[in-house]
Write a protein that binds this DNA or RNA. Structure first.
Length: 697
DNA sequence: CCGAACCCTGTTTTT
DNA sequence: CAGGGTTCGG
């Protein structure tokens, strides 16, 4: 078979990974070693050289962003081109599972039109259940808050233990039976409302595949991105999809970048995989193209704190660069100013090499954003804060989505509770409870129940609900019917949203309840409708109506950030958490707040993971890396003394400096080399139109 | 059922 | 200090 030209640009390690015939392959990819390139090229190779139809290839990622990026890369003509890539199954674990469950819903405990409960719903649900069961719990457990229980439940689910299994597993443990009771009640509630949560998608899908293995007959090869982030349940799922080695599996990842332990991810799955799949081949992408030697060496020092770690041989042929700048400020405000000043200096002195968009401030915790947002605003530096807050988590968006959700799934109690007093309708907890209980007793949906209450059905005799409230319920029903009609007529989701917003006079509600934020919130609603309109265009004719609504709700739950990506570049400095920054890179990076208690975080369960978080943050930098800290930081109120992080305290002296990097012709020259930008021999740069050096376009 | 007054706790990271 | 929770009085 002739070597195709798309393999030419690869280095030896990458090539070995791409063309491996192993049925079980691990690609260990350190920061900047061409992970995405190896993965996408391997997919192209499987299709083009091994004649595997693209529809038999499944690519799983953890984030929507990663899925999107892979898809875009594969669409490029020199890899697959959009023709060949079309049939690929590519998406997050959650979207893959959701797709399977919808398609084979009859084989699952879920009912048609099930919806996915996001975290807030799940939280509210557990909170309510906890409250209800509180008195019957052991004294210790009564003192805990519902959030603890939710986490325990989630943990069990991600271990693959469902409520029934949990109950029987711990039937002799009084403390754990408290959890079991809440777990079971929670699951029952989900089922009653025809819902499942994020974890449930995976768990249900596992059961589905376990009992119906033929459903994944179509799969020839499964590829997994960021494998270090897999938890036990996801690992089981992969095993089911790959039929435990019968089909081929390729995983790509980096144990050193495993920073999701708190979400039950376990990098030990790399080892487990070699045990579970005989003849697993491991390829190490040893060359890093991203950072200078100084940065790589400093980062390596940090991650090596973990003595249980297998050492790596990551090297770079990049320039030595300058030592990492470790900068101290007296207060957090001054830290912000210091960074702002340095950003200005870089942009000025780099002579066009480094622009605002090439700079990031990476932080460990979201509450630090405020500090830097303020400093950057004051310095008039354009910036964007990537909060990780999802668009759909905005209250105003949820208000409207609750209506949509309720009209889609008539058993959706949590949406009903959410929407019933937005705007105020004079129904309190008691009335809602009555409606809920009646619905359960008669096995009516909530919509049917309300209908019967309004119609004064004999069974509702004993219900004492205020006449004003009855009137409001009637109006709600009218809206529901109107929406149903629109769905039957297959009208677009955006029109339906608009109809809901108008009919409940939502802007009036916003105006009355939020004086200052009113306009922002209205704009967000506009944004939601615009997003729906965009989705409307992508839906095929025969899928309109109720199914389109289901798809819309699913995509909006599973993919929280609708807009952040595009905004990210655009000539702005980026303020971002280490977790959100994984997979990204900038010419210049400030890792801010390098203090004991912040990095490593005070009550982190796993200190080794903390060093990996810092490792990830540091390895985002290509040319310049600053680690900054403030001797005093505002905590909740008042200032607190801080100390420099232990993780960086013993960096070898050659690896850091306590001053700002110098800029001169020589520096600009090696920077242009590391960035792979065009230059002249004499060091004068050709900077016109070098385009987007991040290479992700 | 609602709002005002009061008490408490307490700052991760996110599909 | 703030935001969520609880209590109490209309």
């Amino acid at each position: 078979m002739t070597q195709s030209d798309y393999l030419c640009d690869l280095n030896d390690y990458q090539k070995e990974a791409v063309v491996s015939n192993a049925t079980s392959l691990q690609i260990l990819a350190g920061p900047g070693s061409g992970k995405t390139r190896a993965l996408t090229t391997r997919v192209a190779w499987l299709v083009k050289n091994k004649d595997i139809p693209s529809s038999s290839i499944v690519v799983v990622t953890f984030t929507n962003k990663a899925a999107k990026e892979l898809k875009e890369r594969l669409d490029e003509p020199h890899l697959l081109g959009s023709n060949l890539s079309n049939g690929l199954v590519i998406g997050t674990f959650h979207s893959f599972c959701a797709r399977m469950l919808r398609k084979h819903v009859d084989l699952t405990p879920l009912k048609k039109n099930f919806i996915i409960a996001d975290e807030e719903r799940s939280r509210n649900m557990v909170k309510a259940i906890f409250k209800e069961h509180k008195s019957s719990l052991s004294p210790q457990n009564q003192k805990l808050d519902s959030e603890k229980f939710r986490r325990w439940i989630s943990q069990e689910k991600n271990k693959g233990i469902d409520s029934i299994a949990y109950k029987s597993l711990y039937k002799n443990d009084i403390e754990k039976m408290d959890i079991a009771r809440i777990y079971c009640a929670y699951e029952k509630q989900l089922q009653d409302e025809n819902m499942t949560d994020f974890d449930g998608l995976l768990l249900h899908c596992r059961d589905l595949l376990r009992n119906n293995s033929a459903l994944v007959d179509f799969v020839e090869h499964v590829l997994v991105d960021e494998f270090q982030d897999t938890n036990a349940l996801q690992y089981d799922l992969l095993k089911l999809i790959a039929r435990a080695g019968e089909k081929s599996i390729t995983v790509v990842g980096d144990p050193d970048q495993s920073i999701y332990g708190w979400r039950f991810a376990d990098k030990a799955h790399f080892v487990k995989m070699t045990q579970d799949y005989e003849g697993t081949v491991i390829v190490n992408l040893k060359e890093s193209y991203r950072s200078t030697k100084h940065i790589l060496s400093g980062a390596n020092h940090v991650v090596s704190k973990d003595d249980k770690r297998t050492p790596r041989q990551l090297f770079t042929n990049n320039n030595q660069g300058v030592p990492i700048s470790i900068l101290r400020a007296n207060t957090d405000t001054l830290e912000g100013e210091m960074i702002a000043n340095e950003i200005k200096r870089i942009v000025e002195l780099s002579d066009g090499l480094v622009k605002y968009k090439d700079i990031a401030i990476i932080i460990r915790m979201n509450f630090l954003t405020f500090n830097f947002a303020q400093a950057l605003t004051q310095a008039e530096i354009p910036f964007i804060v990537i909060t990780g807050k999802r668009f759909l988590d905005l209250l105003e968006v949820k208000d409207i989505l609750a209506y949509l959700s309720f009209f889609y799934n008539h058993r959706d109690l949590s949406s009903f509770i959410h929407l019933i007093n937005v705007p105020k309708r004079g129904l309190g907890e008691i009335s809602i409870k009555k409606i809920h209980l009646l619905a359960i007793e008669k096995n009516w949906t909530l919509v049917e129940t309300i209908q019967n209450i309004v119609d004064k059905h004999p069974a509702t005799k004993g219900m004492r609900i205020m006449s004003k409230a009855i009137l409001e319920l009637k109006r709600l029903l009218d809206l529901q019917k109107q929406v149903q009609e629109k769905l039957d007529k297959k009208e677009s989701i955006s029109d339906i949203l608009q109809c809901i917003v108008d009919s409940i006079d939502y802007s009036g509600y916003l105006e009355a309840n939020y004086q200052s934020d009113y306009q922002v919130k209205s704009a967000n609603i506009e944004e939601l409708i615009a997003f729906a309109r965009q989705q409307d265009c992508e839906v095929s004719e025969n899928e309109k109506g109720i199914d389109a609504l289901g798809r819309f709700l699913e995509s909006v739950t599973l993919c929280g950030n609708l807009k952040e990506q595009e905004e990210a570049q655009d000539g702005k400095v980026c303020v971002i958490t280490a977790h959100a920054a994984k997979g990204l890179e900038w010419t210049c990076v400030f890792v801010a707040g390098c203090e004991q208690g912040i990095i490593p975080m005070e009550r982190s369960a796993d200190m080794d993971e903390e060093s990996r978080v810092l490792y990830v943050a540091m390895t985002r930098a290509k040319c310049f890396l600053y680690c900054t800290y403030a001797a005093q930081r505002k905590r909740w109120y008042g200032y607190q003394q801080t100390v420099f992080t232990n993780l960086l305290r013993d960096l070898p002296v050659t690896d850091y400096q306590r001053q700002l990097p110098t800029w001169n012709t020589e520096v600009r020259f090696w920077v242009s080399q590391v960035l792979r930008l065009p230059y002249k021999e004499d060091g004068a740069l050709l900077l016109e139109d070098h385009g987007d050096e991040d290479g992700d376009k």
